[in-house]
């Protein structure tokens, strides 16, 4: 086992996490689970940002611009979750289901 941590470790972990999220979005049929997997993919992108910021050291300090971008991503994700869950609740009220297979009104 390599003793020192490299950027590769973090990037591959982030890639795997993104792929797990993608698999969830493709395979699962429950709207709420799909939404959670979207959050997982966002978090994977966050890990990449932090890793690149930490490995880009200038004058003894990490590049904090990545952290700022991550701050904005977290805020937007929180707003997105609030609105998305409200839409899911409204959908559940009118259709009584959260199964994406049964939400096929626009197909016909």
């Amino acid at each position: 086992m390599d003793s020192a941590l490299t950027l590769d470790h973090f990037l591959i972990l982030s890639g795997l996490l993104f792929v797990i999220g993608l698999a969830g979005v493709l395979v699962r049929r429950n709207l709420i689970i799909i939404f959670m997997c979207l959050e997982l993919m966002l978090s994977a992108a966050n890990l990449t940002l932090v890793a690149f910021s930490r490995f880009n050291v200038q004058e003894g300090q990490p590049n904090y611009e990545g952290h700022v971008l991550l701050f904005f991503i977290i805020t937007v994700a929180a707003a997105e979750v609030a609105v998305g869950l409200a839409i899911i609740v409204a959908l559940f009220r009118s259709r009584e289901t959260t199964d994406v297979g049964k939400l096929n009104t626009m197909r016909n």
Binding site: T6, D8, G15, L26, V27
Partner: peptide
Amino acid sequence: SIVVVVSFATLIVTVITRSEVGSAKLPPID
């Protein structure tokens, strides 16, 4: 889904391991 996911994972891992950038060690900070 399995085909898409596996090929995407292979793509990511291949691209990352082949690039020169990723072999950087953790630099010290103050």
